[in-house]
Design a protein around this nucleic acid. Sequence first.
DNA 1: TAGTGGTCTAGACCACAAT
DNA 2: TTGTGGTCTAGACCACTAC
Lengths: 259, 259
Amino acid sequence: MTPAGEAEPAHARIAAAIRRQVENGELQPGQRIPPEQALAEANGVSRPIARLALQILRAEGLIKTIPGRGSVVRPRPILEARDRTPYRRARPGESTSPYARDAIRQGKVPTWDSETVQAKADERVAQRLGITPGDRVMRTTYVFKADGWPVQASTSWEPYDLVGGTPIEEPEGEGRITGVIARFDSIGIRIDRVLEKVHARPATVEERVRIDIPEGIWVITVDRTQYAGGRAVEITDIVIPADRYFLQYEIPVTDEPTT
Amino acid sequence: MTPAGEAEPAHARIAAAIRRQVENGELQPGQRIPPEQALAEANGVSRPIARLALQILRAEGLIKTIPGRGSVVRPRPILEARDRTPYRRARPGESTSPYARDAIRQGKVPTWDSETVQAKADERVAQRLGITPGDRVMRTTYVFKADGWPVQASTSWEPYDLVGGTPIEEPEGEGRITGVIARFDSIGIRIDRVLEKVHARPATVEERVRIDIPEGIWVITVDRTQYAGGRAVEITDIVIPADRYFLQYEIPVTDEPTT
DNA sequence: TAGTGGTCTAGACCACAAT
DNA sequence: TTGTGGTCTAGACCACTAC
């Protein structure tokens, strides 16, 4: 249906032109894109077509549109590593949250909000923790920030049987022990294995609001399970904007089967 | 600009209705979605609005549209694991390509096409392999198939200095040694460390054609580097449809710093 | 008040698919 | 030949933003 296989559709042509301007620096991050009406007139098309061109660029994460104000070139997403390479236990006084470690290494100031509530395990959580649906769990939601900007969110669950009434019942917070491994170490539970399942999907509306993701951008999800002696003691669902981060894993090579 | 903050826009309402029908099974995978014109009339809107509703569902990967034929419910992507948990060396006679191992475990027949050419390293490849731009490399592109359907693509580079003139100069293929680790073992190079960088981005047009990805679906990319004694001996860029797969990593927990 | 994007109408012509 | 999606026109009204 592309007309006659030779000519590019007008909306694709307009999008490509703007994309080129962004890529070669003619349009700088933060700079205004012409209004839809101006774009339409300049290209001799109707406004819906100009609008469609911008829609394509939005889906690519190249521009950001604010109703009533216009579209601007989106600040170049800074590719940042989230280093998930062998976890190690704390040395005294050290920050051991993987998030904090990454952020500090990249010269950012890591902060986070969290909220912990007691809840009942639903089927999925129960299955992953190896408990019974309806069992009590502590559920904590985090929003992680770098230099004050929200960049990552997560929700974690821990069996109430393990942490209820202990010093780590309260979430990670100011003046508290950071990092799951260190927290569990402090109550004598030694995490010895971490499993991460990595997936990607479109961001939900809630996630777009929570961590400032434009429409059309996907998120990488990491479903992490921490084991101590074969028992799952903590699970976390981590959500990060897919266009701004990559995850880095180091994989050992062994001679023997590991499962 | 959602009208008056209460009413949902018509296109969102139509999309939501179809989404609900798919989710509760009223519309089965493969089943037809009404034509755009019919959808418009049934909902009392113009065709562009009905079309916009379908556009939303396409971007979510819920439906697939074929020009001239119509839209159908997309077969539910079956989430499959790509197990990237400690690599191990071959036992005799065993298939050791991680892809083949995963596919067989899931009851699929793994096949692949590959093409190897001699090329010169560009800047990026040279940097990752620790060689000089312009140096000769062997470049191999793969399309991996499960039961004959393309599901994953990759491109790998190896320094010609290492593999040129050896029995593994030719790619993995029928009757040949499969798996990078086994291939290098066979010429006496012992891979001892694998690093993977995981990212996600929109699929390119070429990728959509190569591995049958609908528009709007993103891909997970894995940039893998294999090291032998501190030297990078092989790099691979792996591309997989983000909605069909997840990657599973096992991360050791150590007492000591690893870097 | 003027500018901007969000939503929508009511059509049109074209190319490809199925028959 | 008919149905379908791909593309496009030339407008319209509304709500929010900036001034």
